[in-house]
Nucleic acid binder design. Structure first.
Length: 378
RNA sequence: GCCGAGAUGACGGAGCGGUCAAUCGUAACAGACUGUAAAUCUGUCGCCCGUUUGGGCUACAUAGGUUCGAAUCCUAUUCUCGGCA
């Protein structure tokens, strides 16, 4: 079970400070949620992740089902013990993979569309590697082609065996190029699945329902009202929120009022630095994003001087700390020229050092914004 | 000294008479990435013009030659590597 309490509401925005208690400890919200898809924050040990001020992580049902399998995890004593992470943990349901391995892969499109696209997903389209049915989704492992089926019942069963503190309902994350009708039909299915997830649950792990609706205002509202009416322990907000006109903040402002104020809200998979203040102002309590860890492995450091691509040769002659203002282990120990050397030499320590720093930087930033909320300055 | 093999763009290394400014790696440079298919992917990469199709110039050790046409064939030179003295 989880317990959530709002302990302060900003006078300036909908931002709020909360305490989320789980069987594996409590966290102060709003909080960034690090991504540990395969029961690991890539490149770091659990202890190191703690040292980045991470309070909570999210792992993934789809990937853990494939490897090592939930039965194995159950025998290993649950995921916390398995990965040596004794703090709060969520599992995503596999709903994102319906998109990322389906239309996302077919179209080479991420869940956020940056440019206008001629691509369109209608109810006549079928993804190549994924088959979506009323009962669930047939997947094919992107690694070895292995077939698997995950529906709402299966997802809950797997998530229960994995044993995270918070589970998510199985949904379909729709493509940013999905049209209105496709999104509507998908939404209705996600809603039916939400009820099945609730009915399938047998443990006292928390279960969050997921609001969908893409970039369509009335679908978002409809979804928020419906999912908000179900007895979930908290709510996730998924999918994308459209381009220029509909900003994310507008969509969140539209969605949040329909969800119970007393329950925690998680924004799924959003969290570039520039998004974070907006996310927090809207009243979201937790949000996960691959950006700090994923970008780290591609050479990008997020610093007080902005983004730095540490693969660039210019840093080879730069003897300054990665970020002079950052007190993290990477920044107090190593210089830019060394980190760049490690990238150019294809040394895995480069990935570790940036992953550590980026997580520390994101968590510190969120921490500083929490202070702002407490002072009613955000 | 003799015999054999070879010299290709920043580097490695294809090509072995026309479709070659030259496959492919690497390096370099630029870019992308938002519930992780991702230590990944994309673009540029002789010089000069054109926004694109394209045009011009200089190039495959050096110098000659054969040919309508040569990185590709021949000759000489220089250098490198291997074997024998």
């Amino acid at each position: 079970m989880i317990d959530f309490k709002v302990i302060h509401k900003s006078k300036k925005s909908n931002a709020r400070i909360g305490i989320l208690r789980t069987p594996h400890g409590e966290i102060e919200t709003p909080s960034f949620v690090g991504v540990a898809t395969q029961a690991v924050v890539k490149t770091l040990t659990a202890k190191e992740v703690e040292e980045t001020k991470s309070q909570i992580l999210i792992s993934n049902t789809f990937h853990l089902h494939l490897k090592p399998g939930e039965d194995f995890l159950k025998k290993a004593g649950g995921i916390h013990k398995f990965m040596n992470w004794n703090k709060p943990l969520m599992t995503d349901s596999g709903g994102f993979q319906v998109f990322s391995l389906g239309f996302g892969r077919d179209h080479g499109v991420g869940k956020i569309l940056k440019e206008k696209s001629d691509l369109k997903v209608t109810t006549k389209n079928k993804p190549k590697n994924v088959k979506i049915t009323e009962d669930g989704v047939f997947f094919r492992s992107p690694k070895d082609g292995q077939k698997l089926f995950i529906g709402p019942k299966e997802s809950i069963k797997i998530q229960e065996a994995i044993g995270a503190d918070i589970m998510f309902a199985f949904d379909e994350c729709t493509s940013p190029v999905a049209d209105y009708y496709y999104t509507k039909r998908s939404l209705e299915k996600t809603h039916r699945w939400a009820q099945i997830c609730l009915d399938s649950k047998t443990t006292d792990q928390a279960l969050y329902g997921i609001v969908q609706g893409g970039k369509f205002e009335n679908l978002r509202t409809e979804s928020a009202k419906y999912i908000g009416s179900l007895p979930f322990d908290g709510f996730g907000i998924g999918g994308e929120f459209g381009d220029e006109k509909r900003t994310m903040s507008d969509m969140l402002a539209l969605t949040l009022p329909h969800l119970l104020y007393e329950k925690p809200v998680h924004l799924l998979g959003i969290g570039h630095l520039e998004d974070i203040p907006e996310i927090m102002k809207s009243g979201v309590d937790t949000f996960d994003c691959i950006v700090p860890t994923h970008y780290a492995r591609h050479g990008v450091a997020f610093t007080s001087e902005g983004r730095m691509d540490m693969r660039k040769s210019k840093y080879l002659s730069d003897p300054l700390p990665l970020d002079e203002k950052c007190p993290c282990l990477t920044c107090i120990t190593y210089k830019r020229n060394y980190i760049t050397h490690l990238f150019k030499a294809d040394e895995i320590t480069a990935l570790r050092l940036l992953t550590f720093h980026n997580l520390y930087y994101f968590n510190s930033y969120v921490e500083s914004l929490r202070e702002e909320i407490k002072k009613n300055a955000l």
